[in-house]
Amino acid sequence: MAKQENSIESAHRVKLLEIDWEDLSEPGAYVERGTGDLYRFPMESLLKGGSPVVTKESHGASRLCQISKDPYVTSMKARLICAQHNIEPNF
């Protein structure tokens, strides 16, 4: 009987898409790298002239990491993805 070895190392580590607020064009769930805040952007929120419109003003640089293409990903799964990418969630 052959012994099966399992590795705790991830076989394939995926780098998260990281963008500026101004470059946001794809729906999904995003975490702000600096604060750990979660933002959900469905397709409807990205349509020109559509509502709701999200605007953020800040003196500091603020980057968003797309943790899922699904804006309705569960909070538990979103926190797990953050942990896997060394982002401290604030949600």
Rank of each mutant, 00 (worst) to 15 (best):
G28H: 01
W21Q: 09
R13F: 15
A29S: 12
R79P: 01
P27T: 05
Q66Y: 02
A83I: 15
K56Y: 07
V54F: 09
A11N: 13
S62C: 07
M1T: 02
A2R: 00
A29K: 04
D70N: 15
R33F: 03
S68C: 08
N86E: 09
S68A: 15
L17Q: 05
P27H: 03
S58G: 02
E9P: 01
E22R: 02
L16M: 08
G50Y: 11
I81Y: 08
Q66C: 14
K48Y: 03
M43N: 10
A78E: 01
G60F: 06
S25C: 10
N6T: 07
L24V: 01
L24G: 01
Y39V: 01
N90Q: 10
M43D: 12
V54P: 00
V54C: 03
A29F: 02
I19F: 04
V73D: 01
L24Y: 02
K15L: 10
N90A: 15
I8K: 12
R79T: 08
A29T: 09
G50I: 08
D70M: 06
T55F: 07
L47I: 13
S51A: 08
P52V: 11
E9S: 14
G28N: 01
D37H: 10
P27S: 05
M1L: 05
Q84N: 09
T55P: 01
R33M: 07
H59W: 06
M1R: 11
A11D: 12
T74K: 11
L80E: 07
E32R: 08
S10Y: 10
G36W: 04
L16G: 03
M1F: 04
G34V: 11
L64K: 03
R79H: 07
L46G: 05
L17P: 03
H59S: 03
I81F: 09
L64T: 00
E57V: 00
P89K: 08
S45I: 05
L46A: 07
L80Q: 10
A29I: 03
T55E: 11
Y39K: 06
E88H: 10
H59Y: 05
C65Q: 02
N6E: 11
W21S: 04
E26P: 00
E9N: 14
P52S: 06
D23T: 06
K56M: 08
L80M: 10
